[in-house]
Design a protein around this nucleic acid. Structure first.
Lengths: 224, 224
DNA sequence: GTCTATACTTGGATAGAC
DNA sequence: GTCTATCCAAGTATAGAC
């Protein structure tokens, strides 16, 4: 990790200092979006949380919106990476719901999805921001579609409901549940829904309409 | 409708003038929330849309937040009244989904739900606003729960999934779909979901696990 | 690269004329 | 009840010192 050619002091001088500042600003922007929403995410509020000067927002990101988009990028990248790793071994609908429930609880408690929600809701206040945000949401829908495809495949269920539309609904539900939960401070009804979804998924498996046909899912080998 | 004792001029003087101004401000607040979001809903922006003076916001509503809450009240009341009338004759899950699809399309095009979404998302920027908004969302969940109860009742489905949790999910999905649709400018995937829901509801009916038992739903009489 | 200082704009809110 | 005028706080953004 240590870069060659830099002095012994790690981030107090040298080329890495700029990147470090950008990073604390991005993290502070994320925290500010969670705690005070889009309307409260001013350059002053974010810089205050980051413990640095307000002018640095404009030096490093050009504008407040520029920083907020960088924050959205960071959350998206980190979460999508985590999602991918989590669903790697998922093979059935019931397993998927189980994993999704765990991830949702994480996201809810950490407020990751709130960053997306605030940016979407705040997009209408700034011309051109909507398209930027939309472009950053699209990977979430693509990921959901891929996972749904890998679990439902060309099974009976997957044929009746197109995975793209189902993914759209899943992402919408995810955003809406986050919205309601952070408003009401009660995450119980949202988590309970995942339990019921788990039962439904198990039912789908029993009925044999959700598992992949054997031809597209050969017996897994031991070696990775 | 005409009030006794007032002059021939309708709203230019007299007691009704205040109410009329309040109403145009509320309507302008609704439009501003739809078009510019919570972050863009300033007293000046709203008053400009209403065609009146910015100071009137504070005279009539005390603060900008006060006006926005009045706007949320107005939308909630008008929509819930419309919902109630629409589901009055609904007796089966399939009918309910049909009615819900029509209502959703209305809400989407008119932006009614966007007002809720913006207020929820904006609530975190102002101390104390969250509780006020939560109190105004709760009737939506109660309504959804009542309708779900009236259609599923103590049937098989209604017993497996508690109506309160299902209502929570339905409202969340409603909010999330609105959020995504107004971002992406494409309502097709959201509307398609209602079509699939209709098929599912029809399946539920065929299986006989969604209709009310005859004892709780006697044959309707002609007189209301 | 980071800070201070500052110009400029917008927004919430109030006082007082009409 | 409505308007004009105004105050003050907060926000964006830039210039220039360090």
């Amino acid at each position: 990790m240590a870069k060659p050619g830099t002095s012994s002091r790690l981030v107090t001088e040298g080329a890495g200092r700029s990147a470090a500042t950008k990073q604390v600003l991005v993290e502070a922007a994320i925290e500010t979006l969670k705690a005070e929403g889009f309307a409260g995410a001013s350059a002053r509020a974010i810089a205050g949380r980051a413990g640095c000067n307000q002018a640095l927002v404009f030096y490093h990101f050009g504008s407040v919106v520029g920083l907020l988009l960088a924050a959205l990028d960071a959350v998206s990248a980190s979460r999508l990476e985590h999602y991918s790793a989590s669903v790697e071994d998922v093979r059935s609908p019931a397993e998927l719901v189980e994993v999704a429930a765990a991830i949702f609880r994480e996201d809810l408690d950490a407020g990751h999805v709130t960053v997306l929600v605030e940016m979407i809701a705040g997009a209408s206040s700034t011309p051109g921001l909507g398209a930027e945000v939309a472009a950053r949401i699209s990977p979430w829908k693509q990921f959901a579609k891929q996972v749904i495809d890998s679990v439902l495949g060309d099974s009976a269920l997957g044929t009746v409901i197109p995975s793209g539309e189902l993914a759209h609904g899943v992402v919408a539900l995810y955003l809406g549940l986050d919205l309601l939960t952070h408003l009401g401070e009660d995450r119980a009804p949202a988590l309970a829904l995942f339990d019921h979804a788990k039962q439904l998924a198990a039912l789908v498996e029993v009925l044999g309409i959700g598992r992949l046909p054997a031809t597209t899912a050969p017996a897994p080998k031991e070696a990775s």
